[in-house]
Design a protein around this nucleic acid. Structure first.
Lengths: 225, 225
DNA sequence: TGACCGAATAATGAATTCAAAATTAAAAAC
DNA sequence: GTTTTTAATTTTGAATTCATTATTCGGTCA
């Protein structure tokens, strides 16, 4: 690690932004749930000032909704918003693929291959949770290898808003198998360092995931009618 | 206007975020300039609390840089950051083109054609400022016609961070003429509602602009050596 | 019983206050 | 005269306080 890098002592509100974002993305709150300032302040042991600053930042990221004089709630993700978000993320994924193929190192590829093989095993074993982790690792390793902080930042912001969606509908066996196939192709394109192909594959991978999700959600709402 | 829309009374910090963002994007501050809380509070007639909330939001948008215990400065845009931002914007522009072609109305196209023709006149008259306005109008009309708020939000955020760049180097006559040509092609693709073509044209238009900007900046730094 | 009103309570928005850190100014040493 | 040390001032980070707006609860009246 770079010892001469400037030390960054995070201020309270930064700390709170990170903690709260983590809690929201990792589903410690229900979507739409009210966020009471008082009790949160108590549990974090801070005053309302930095907490409110953090909430405003999270609101600008779209993770929280502020209603004047009525406090803040965890943002809900509507199907319409999903439909708007996925194409944007897919557009970014294409760029991720193009940049990653041009910039990724051999050791990064080796690491991804290793996680890929683990993921295939988890699929065979039907270990959803381990699968999700490996999948996550692979995608964030590719994103990092694109070496573009601006891209990374916006990708992460968008992804965190739809992350919750993966809990909304359980993935079908068919889609799961298809995803594994797609991941195989992605790894191949990565090892070939074929940017155009990798970008297309990553983009389609995401759009297919969205299509599967939409089918699952429609099924749910149909059943509810 | 929709009279039954819910009234939105903005809180102080929202108001401040908008005002400050406008001021930063429209170059009322020097890049890197210190933002003294006290004097800003005085000029806005508010206390530090809402101002600091606003600064934190702007920092998360990347327009302001906060250094703990040392206050806030207007973010500077480094060449490296430009190089990271333009490809991301270009990726979004492609999606804008695809969506816009599919969704834009005849009257929106008519409006854009009107602004386009005005812009061509301004080019002939060498009226840079009017040209910039018309150009801006066209691009934001296309963006709006894509009818995707998520896309719009991220596009706007990225664009505002590089907007300042247009002041950094004056556009060359060659590039200006080329831009006009590209705009003609964009309008044609729009009227044909050819999404793939429009997306490619918009994306390349932006990347060409960036290339011209980079050449101009290199020229500047070379001259300074 | 249940809809409506009003007081009590709680939550929020924003100003103020206080403590810690940084900056500036002044004094001392070389 | 320049650099270093130290004190004063300013600026920032965060807690507290105050005013305003919601919400809840209890009571009234149909």
């Amino acid at each position: 690690m770079n010892l001469s890098a400037p030390i960054h002592r995070p201020s309270l509100h930064e700390e709170l932004v990170d903690r709260l974002r983590e809690m929201i993305v990792e589903d410690h709150f229900q979507p739409g749930e009210k966020i009471p300032e008082k009790s949160l302040c108590d549990s974090f042991g801070v005053s309302r000032t930095p907490l409110r600053e953090a909430l405003k930042v999270l609101a600008s990221e779209g993770l929280v909704v502020l209603t004047p004089n009525r406090g803040s709630r965890v943002a809900t993700v509507t199907p319409e918003e999903l439909a708007n978000t996925f194409p944007v993320l897919a557009a970014l994924e294409r760029l991720v693929g193009e940049l990653s193929a041009a910039r990724i190192s051999d050791s990064e590829i080796a690491h991804i291959r290793e996680r890929h093989e683990a993921m295939v095993r988890y699929h065979k074993e039907r270990d959803r949770s381990a699968y999700f982790m490996a999948n996550q690792d692979i995608h964030s390793a590719i994103l990092r290898s694109a070496a573009n902080p601006v891209l990374e930042q916006h990708h992460t912001a968008l992804a965190s808003r739809v992350r919750r969606a993966r809990f909304m509908a359980n993935i079908s066996d068919d889609r799961w198998a298809q995803a594994i196939t797609e991941h195989g192709e992605i790894l191949a394109a990565l090892e070939d360092r074929d940017g155009a192909r990798l970008g297309a594959l990553l983009s389609n991978h995401l759009l297919n995931k969205f299509a599967a999700l939409q089918r699952a959600l429609e099924g749910v709402s149909d059943a509810a009618e």
